[in-house]
Amino acid sequence: MSASVDSQFVHKIWDEEELAKMIEAGGVPFPMIADAAGRVGQAYGVYDAEAGVNVRGRFIIDPDGVIQAMEVLTPPVGRKVTETLRQIRAYQHVRETKGAEVMPSGWEPGKKVLKPGPELVGHVWEVWDPKKDE
């Protein structure tokens, strides 16, 4: 879901007039939240009271309602959707294995995961080479 200080009416016209032409599905598939007074943004620490808008905050919330990841950007730079999807897949894998498997930096679905434990301490270099694309 997305949120800005625009009204739901502006969301409707933006979706119909512009976004529908940019999205294969023919429109935004998720709810577009009207956070007119910025209260939701304030609760998430992303409302810029001076500018009167929410900055680019992105939160991944798990099925228990817990924030697993967050990213906040100033307005001029956009996000990368594939990075958000990568993080969601990584957290889903962690959840499925109940934390028994963790993802080293640069992990992509299908690549090597690590199993934390006493034996792995000091030996990560033997099982995972960050220079190798595995």
């Binding site: 879901m1 997305s2 502006v10 808008v53 929410n54 991944i60 919330i61 307005p75 996000r79």
Partner: peptide
Amino acid sequence: WVVLCFYPGDF
């Protein structure tokens, strides 16, 4: 799983 994205403004 929920992704909540804030952004400055429509258009």
